[in-house]
Design a protein around this nucleic acid. Sequence first.
DNA 1: ATGTTTCATGCAACCGGTTGCAGCCCCTGA
DNA 2: TCAGGGGCTGCAACCGGTTGCATGAAACAT
Lengths: 327, 327
Amino acid sequence: MAATIRDVARASGVHVSTVSRTFSAPHLVNAETRNRVLAVAEDLGYRPNRAARALTTGRTHNIGLIVADISNPFFPPLIKAAQAQARARDYHVFVADTDEDPQVEEELIQTLAKQVDGVLLCSPRLSNRVIERLHAEVPFVVVNRRVKGMPTILMDVGQGARLAIEHLTGLGHHRIALLSGPSGSWTSGEMRAAAAEMDGVELVILGPNAPTERGGLAVAEEVIASGVTGVLAYNDLVAIGLIEGLYERGVRVPDDISVVGVDDIVAGRLNRPKLTSVAMPTAAAGRMAVDLLLQSFDEGATPTLATLDTHLVVRESTDRAALFPRG
Amino acid sequence: MAATIRDVARASGVHVSTVSRTFSAPHLVNAETRNRVLAVAEDLGYRPNRAARALTTGRTHNIGLIVADISNPFFPPLIKAAQAQARARDYHVFVADTDEDPQVEEELIQTLAKQVDGVLLCSPRLSNRVIERLHAEVPFVVVNRRVKGMPTILMDVGQGARLAIEHLTGLGHHRIALLSGPSGSWTSGEMRAAAAEMDGVELVILGPNAPTERGGLAVAEEVIASGVTGVLAYNDLVAIGLIEGLYERGVRVPDDISVVGVDDIVAGRLNRPKLTSVAMPTAAAGRMAVDLLLQSFDEGATPTLATLDTHLVVRESTDRAALFPRG
DNA sequence: ATGTTTCATGCAACCGGTTGCAGCCCCTGA
DNA sequence: TCAGGGGCTGCAACCGGTTGCATGAAACAT
């Protein structure tokens, strides 16, 4: 089938080690020899087998990227940024989706462990304990989850939640619902903690909810029953689903209830009403995650913790509370 | 570091080949020995290194899945279905994104070639010539592109385009714009060909357009200038962007112009107006793609061509043409 | 008691690369 | 003339597994 290093060696009359060096340490081989080998390799369509190389070097030059749900539009910008950054560093990214299933997540990490140099865990659903155990098999960078002793990238969603709630109270909303996410979600906990310590707010916690528009649709009834005038949803998908559900029940946004999402995904911008949302620095997180991971290979570097700021994008889904003076 | 097969062999007092067989051909080893080896392996946290195994067996049990743009919501259902199907067959899927760049696509295939047993090419942007050349290095299944001699899955988008146009003409639209996609897109060509041979339609072709809402936004001005009353967009994202662009210019959908998208993505269902769209059997395509690929490993099987039907989902973005009798 | 199977295991080569070490050649300087 | 050193290449072991073949023991048939 495909030409191997020995085919090239034979055809160019040198030893395999010389061919090997031609590709992995060119400065060690005479220019003339090198050119001959390269010509033969080109001719035979030879390409070094990265997997075989990894066997001796211990470096695959691949990194794994595990996300909970690839169809959640929150992830693609992060994935793309990570891929671009990795490519620039001569690495490749393999993406895998766990379907929000911790079991699958663990299995995936196990499989990936030997085929990549490190793994980016984005919004993992596994428990910290399991993550720490798996860490023995492969280096991690964790995104949106705090695990001690591991390089971590956090998006400051607590700050985002505060901004969102301040925005709502500023508009006269005082009874506010917080739609929480999946039970394993660190993000959800952060939002809840941040919201709980704010003054002048009657907080109603509803959930856990699936982090999808379906989750938002399903909770609409409860939101109405709770008598709130403002809602902070776990993410934009939930917010969009909720708005849809409210709409079906004759409750209008933002006239009757104001809704804030999180993530600032494209669909929110195209939604009607356009969604007010907490914007997450996903692309920056993707780039930084790759850099942190590569960095962790080189040195016995101490694990870094990076916290990235979020900000609020005000659009049309929030407005003054109904009983609040309009003028 | 991680335990190897030799560590296990030493600790359990057998030869490495026995350990190897314990995992890859258990029936060849005595039950008692097997249990002892398994216990030791468990104890040491040993897991077979799939990459090393692949070196001799030639089977990685991985498959690659290459898409043009992971942030296009058309792909995730396909990806998820492929992953689920692969898992059921004891295979794993690595996803990679080409950013719509043929150069990147080729490079990615080259890299993946040795690390997977086969590759699913979804809506590739490479030319058939290049695809055929690369086929020497790794088995393919091609989705939404016709390449001779290769297992192929097509979604019958020509039929979908006909359904959409019939729907529009039935509503009294006779001057219809077709917003084409990227220049390398097979899908786009099929739509165009199908549309061109329909009677009673004045077809205006606009494009190529980027297959994103941005692409739709950008072409809005041209659509208005063309004087059409009906539009068939390359996909839902383009349709959504177009509707947004028309809206900004005071043109209303479906009152002034009717718009049909393709793919039936979730965002289209949440859009206002809800999008009329040609639904693609993406999940079925993902499952079938995996099966076709695995099948192509086993036998010297002749490459199959599967064509999957599409159907039209009518929602709110299409209505009677303005001059068409309403009653 | 002997020949034949069957079962379980060990041996060693191999997959496609990498790399420390040794050896050769040639150039330099004393 | 010869020691020393640099540049280039070959040798062979190694990475972590798999597998065809040989071996040995036990079980069975004759």
